[in-house]
């Protein structure tokens, strides 16, 4: 991951069944290295990917409030769940890593 001055690189991982929304098989991980402007937010990166992947756009965001993530996908930024060290509108830094995993509860 390199910083060009004009942009930073953020790694985005879609793991297991969530990667179906970005063309994956529903197993393993699908990774993207996103070149984004310095100061880009978590929301901005997810919006960019949503624009390129309609299934993700349809699935990631809450159907009643498209500015919020739905309940069924966990967003993890640098190994911490969204809300711990980052919010949706937190700015990202070079080398930050966003992971999307299925929310999981129960037996």
């Amino acid at each position: 991951m390199t910083q060009t001055g004009e942009s930073i690189t953020v790694r985005v991982d879609f793991i297991s069944w969530v990667n179906q929304f970005v063309g994956g098989s529903g197993t393993g991980a699908t990774e993207f290295d996103e070149q984004v402007p310095p100061g880009e937010t978590v929301r901005g990166v997810l919006n960019r990917l949503s624009e390129r992947h309609p299934k993700l756009k349809a699935s990631l965001w809450d159907e009643n409030d498209r500015s919020q993530i739905g309940t069924h996908i966990e967003i993890i930024v640098n190994d911490a769940v969204l809300g711990v060290a980052h919010e949706l509108d937190s700015q990202l830094e070079e080398g930050d890593r966003i992971t999307l995993a299925g929310q999981y509860v129960g037996g």
Partner: peptide, 19 residues
């Protein structure tokens, strides 16, 4: 529905990797 599709397809098998 994306909130339940994984469960529909695979039950709770996805739990290990996600958790």
């Amino acid at each position: 529905d994306p909130t339940t599709k994984g469960l529909y397809q695979l039950g709770t098998l996805g739990g290990v990797r996600n958790l």
